[in-house]
Simulated scan of single mutants.
Amino acid sequence: MSKKSPTKSAEAKAEARSSEKQARLGTQMRGRLAEAYDARGHSRGTLNYHYSPKCRRDVVLMGHAELGHFLTVEYNARIVEVDYAPRDKVKGIAGDELGEFIHASIKLRDGTKVWRHISAENPGDKHDVIEANLNRLIAHKTHPDLPDRYEKWIWEENRLKPQLIHNSLRMVSWLAQAREWPLLEESKKILALVAANGEIAASDVMALDSSPAQALYLAAMSKLVLSGQLDSDLTHLPLSPISRLYKLEGVRHEQ
């Protein structure tokens, strides 16, 4: 009986890896959702699957609180990096209990690293002991990869920004559809238009192209607003053709 040559075996493995990378987006999504359902355990929280412009990949979010947090983070230009699933990393740094307690790890533009616990409502003193232990670890810097501070993010307190959250969802969705395009040329034209006029409307962006490629200009506009390269009135007014875009003064953050 003949044996397979090492060369053919290596080629077969390479082909398998290539096939996996080239799997259709729907197949990839189903695989990631299956993993998320397994990780969810006995929780009945709704799973939300979204594309993250900050992470440049799809992320799975548990329940409405994590979804709301996601939409405010994506709109916050002060946040430059985010991990929406830091459980394993946190466990390796601070133990299993804190690994289950921390739901997001972020890095601010000034280099500050923050761990966040996300909750639908204020738990009161329910988590006081866990929070005290975490703050003690941070204060004594017992591990070099500990954050600079800990924050508690409460959905009940942040849902008072309904327009920002709704606009963020629309812009994130546009960017999800344009994920394969760099949007460099479209962004340059929009920034040049703002530089020349000081203030423009979303309809001015739409007028840059009347073909189906107009959608790329809307995605580029979204990218510029979410990344903080342009300021706008979208924190408090609906996204529409009359939405205003301005030259940024300083670093915009969520309102």
Rank of each mutant, 00 (worst) to 15 (best):
A120Q: 14
P238F: 01
G63N: 00
D110I: 04
I242Q: 14
H127Q: 13
L226E: 06
D83R: 13
L25T: 13
L184Y: 15
F101Q: 07
A215R: 15
S203P: 10
H140M: 06
L164D: 06
T72I: 12
L146Y: 04
E156P: 04
K161N: 12
A94Q: 07
A207F: 01
H64Q: 13
P241W: 05
K223D: 04
T112Q: 10
V172A: 07
R30N: 14
L193P: 09
P123K: 04
K8P: 03
L230H: 01
T142C: 01
L245I: 13
M171Y: 07
W155C: 13
A215K: 06
H127P: 01
N158C: 07
I200L: 04
P53D: 07
I138W: 04
K89H: 00
T7M: 14
L47K: 10
M171K: 01
D209H: 07
H103S: 08
V114H: 02
A94D: 05
D88V: 10
L137C: 02
L230I: 00
N48I: 12
A65C: 08
K141E: 08
Y217N: 02
H143P: 07
P6A: 02
V59R: 09
S19C: 06
L226T: 02
Y84A: 07
S203H: 07
Y150T: 03
G228W: 04
R244N: 00
M221W: 08
I102R: 01
N135R: 15
Y49I: 12
V172T: 07
K189C: 05
H236I: 09
D125W: 15
A85I: 09
